[in-house]
Computed example of a mutant assay.
Amino acid sequence: MTEWPTIHLTQARQVAALMDQKTALPAPEVTVRARFEELKRDNPSQALNFLVHALPRLEAIYWAAGTIMAASQSSPPPTGDQQATREAIRSWLEQQDERTRRLAYDRAQAIARDLPERSLAGAIFYSGGSIAPADAAPILPIPGLANRLAATAVLQAAYLGGDAQAFIASALHEAEAVAKHGTRPKTEGPENESPRTDGRGAA
């Protein structure tokens, strides 16, 4: 069993540390790939969470964004605030700088916490740079938080409707492909959706 080129961590317990796991840590000799295969057999959701924590944070976010944008094409129209958040996320994917990073986070504050766009925008915000106000002394994010929010966003999308287990299986397959081959940011998705005026919308 070979390890994945995109993943630079070698021990499963390194990933567990990023997941803030304090007890029942894998033995030092257990590799990332071996632990993933074990989780994949027993609990695909946990396997997805583990693998996304193992990925470099930008690859994790690109994967999550591509997964959520693809799902949004067959979902109900978004609310105005949800669409504004999607557009801000897309702007960051196209041009990653301080302005677009903060814009994605700011726009997401207007939508419900359990929507995947809000978690994805949080992953973007915590992906690099200071999380303090722009005019305050820099504060760095907690390691692994961007990955955690990327995984959360995809799992939230899975349970918004339809077959959650099939969604997770597909997302897990795509995450494995990222681990093997890397990825680029995906910006395709609904460009000119008509916002809903009632309800929350869905990813």
Rank of each mutant, 00 (worst) to 15 (best):
F50P: 00
D114S: 10
G122S: 09
A137Y: 04
N43I: 05
F50D: 01
P78V: 01
T23K: 05
G128C: 13
L9F: 14
T85K: 02
A16F: 06
W4R: 02
L18N: 15
Q96R: 10
S75R: 02
Q14K: 05
A134V: 04
E87Q: 08
E117I: 09
F50W: 04
A88T: 02
E87S: 07
S130R: 01
P133Q: 01
D81R: 12
N43W: 13
A65M: 09
A112C: 06
F125T: 04
R41D: 14
E94K: 09
I124Q: 05
L103H: 12
T6D: 11
P78I: 02
D81W: 09
Y62T: 08
Y62K: 08
D97G: 03
S45P: 09
Q82P: 15
A112T: 11
G80S: 12
E59L: 12
S45Q: 10
V15S: 01
A71R: 00
A88V: 02
Q96T: 15
A110Q: 13
E37A: 05
T100H: 00
V52L: 08
V30R: 04
S130V: 03
I68S: 03
G122L: 07
P44V: 00
L115M: 10
A65D: 07
A17N: 14
K22N: 11
V32A: 05
W63F: 12
R118A: 11
E94Q: 11
A136V: 15
S130C: 05
A136P: 13
I68F: 10
A16W: 06
P78R: 00
I131Q: 01
V15D: 03
I89M: 05
L18K: 15
V15P: 00
A104Y: 04
G128W: 13
T23Y: 13
E37H: 06
A70N: 07
I124L: 14
H8L: 12
A132C: 11
A110I: 15
T67S: 06
S127Q: 07
A123V: 04
L58V: 11
H8G: 14
M19N: 06
T85Y: 06
Q109H: 10
A16E: 08
S119N: 07
F50Y: 10
I7D: 05
A84F: 13
K40C: 06
H8E: 15
S119E: 12
L51H: 07
M19W: 03
E59D: 14
H8I: 04
P44N: 00
L93S: 01
D106I: 12
G129M: 04
P78M: 02
K40D: 07
W92I: 03
R118S: 10
L9H: 11
A54L: 04
A17R: 15
T10I: 14
T10N: 07
I89C: 07
E98C: 02
D106F: 07
T10F: 10
A70W: 00
I89W: 04
R90V: 02
A108M: 12
Y62H: 14
L51E: 08
R101A: 04
L9P: 11
P77Q: 02
A71C: 03
Q73F: 01
A108N: 10
G66V: 01
E98Y: 03
D42Q: 09
